[in-house]
Nucleic acid binder design. Structure first.
Lengths: 194, 194
DNA sequence: TGTTACCGAACAAGCGCTTGCTACATCGAG
DNA sequence: CTCGATGTAGCAAGCGCTTGTTCGGTAACA
């Protein structure tokens, strides 16, 4: 166990918080340094550039997400249960990396200009494929409706799910798990009472 | 009919396109000027600042949105039909102001630092209240389920609806109207066949 | 002759990043 | 145990560049 958390980790934490709340371009390296308690030049002992920090944040986040998704599709085969697990799994990743999630959802156009963008694109494609496979499988087996294109269903769920990081904060009365159940139920059963 | 479209309008159009695709902070006034075919300094004959352009773009957009919503709730009383009309109305506003929509959805943290932010906040509150009233009314009258908080339902629909500006482009086979119907149907009836 | 639209050139501020240097901890050789 | 060598972390200063913005001049037009 590290008694003192790694300096590099602290910097990434502070940077992620700033990137998430102000945007990447609007956050200066001087602000990041001040949040950590050092001067801006000293940041470059730990990272080669500002974009290097961004890359490290997003990379960790996406790797975690992909590994969670991989395990879900390996352990479950029923599309309905898979979809439920994907929602719960995604929200647990949001809880683990709230700042990174927000950065990834908000700053897509900045990320696409990064040097390490290939790695991001590959993982993003994996994530999308997972959802499309699960939904497509559900349509084929008849547990999901077939009159709406799977890619449309995916996008609706995807956006509603991931943008919750912008507004949803769990409370005693309304936990993250309850929210996940409600989200799943809304999409599976609809708003109109059955 | 204006034979030559207003210079100011042309500038706002080009600026909105750049803001939407690259982000506001990442777009320079020199880029905007070059897109119009003038020098950066000449922009300041038409606008007092870069933020002034942003404000004009978002202001027009939100005013249009609020007026569309106002007419909908005035002409329709059934919550289910109101919700359907809100979705269709929103998507027509997206078609009319695609760039402004994207700016508003993506650059919230930049907008919140604007001087004219009060006007934005007021209209944003009006929009939210419209949705919450419609959903809340549906819950009270029993046409919408009551086991999920209305503000959660609102957010799920809102995010799925407005983020479609990022990915949905109507085609011959799949029109905007069809997409609107599918989105309404997904939320009202759910993904599982009834 | 005034007004409108724009040019051309510049300005101050702020940006990411680099550099030369110091203080301190660690550690193997004597 | 001691002591020089080495690596780590940070400071202080500033460089080159880009940014939004300003301003005097000018050409076309009414």
């Amino acid at each position: 166990m590290a008694e003192t958390p790694d300096r590099r980790t602290v910097i990434l934490d502070k940077a992620a918080g700033l990137f998430a709340s102000k945007g990447i371009a609007a956050t200066t390296v001087r602000e990041i340094a001040e949040a950590v308690g050092i001067l801006s030049g000293s940041l470059y002992h730990h990272f080669t550039s500002k974009d290097d920090m961004v890359d490290a944040i997003v990379r960790t986040y996406l790797d975690d997400l992909v590994s969670v998704y991989t395990e879900i599709v390996a352990q479950e085969s029923d599309p309905r249960k898979q979809l439920t697990a994907l929602v719960h799994g995604s929200l647990s990743v949001i809880e683990a990396h709230p700042h990174a999630t927000e950065i990834y959802q908000n700053s897509g156009n900045y990320l696409s200009s990064l040097v390490g963008y290939e790695h991001i694109k590959i993982n993003a494609a994996k994530v999308q494929k997972t959802w499309l496979d699960v939904i497509g499988n559900g349509v084929v087996t008849g547990v999901f409706r077939d009159d709406i294109p799977p890619r449309v269903l995916y996008r609706l769920i995807r956006d509603a799910l991931w943008l919750s990081v912008r507004w949803f904060k769990p409370t005693h009365q309304y936990s993250m798990k309850k929210f996940a159940d409600d989200l799943v139920s809304t999409f599976l059963d609809g708003i109109v009472p059955r």
